[in-house]
């Protein structure tokens, strides 16, 4: 199947998927290198948003609305994850002794 056989929507979805994949590399790099714990949490949050985009694009490519439900579910739980991580960071800061 060549690029000319695709419909316009499929072409756009594949291009968007490539762009999201490119972004995934950058965010993963940030997640691995840090340097602070806050950077990693923010990168994790951003990974959730990228996952929503990937799920939605998969729904377009597979022409199946079930994948859209997955996107919705990730949107719901990503928020909870971010809140939990924020609590963890703040709690860790309060528990750490003053010696440093």
């Amino acid at each position: 199947m060549t690029i000319f056989d695709m419909t316009l929507v499929e072409l756009a979805a594949r291009a968007a998927m490539a762009l999201v994949g490119l972004g995934l590399v950058g965010v993963a790099w940030r997640l691995l290198t840090g340097p602070s714990a806050a950077d990693r949490v923010i990168a994790t949050d951003m990974l959730g948003l990228l996952a929503i985009a990937i799920a939605a694009l998969t729904a377009v490519l597979a022409i199946h609305a079930a994948f859209l439900d997955i996107a919705f579910a990730i949107a719901l739980f990503g928020f909870l994850g971010a809140v939990a991580f924020a609590g963890l960071l703040e709690g860790a800061a309060e528990r750490r002794p003053e010696v440093d």
Binding site: I52, A75, V83, L88
Partner: peptide
């Protein structure tokens, strides 16, 4: 589904980012 997901994102992300930013500041980022 799509509109519900967008509405949920727009409603919750500011809260999440506010909490994350506050936590990062307190943790000494």
């Amino acid at each position: 589904t799509a509109l519900a997901a967008v509405a949920f994102l727009v409603a919750t992300t500011p809260i999440a980012s506010h909490l994350l930013g506050r936590a990062a500041y307190v943790a000494g980022a």
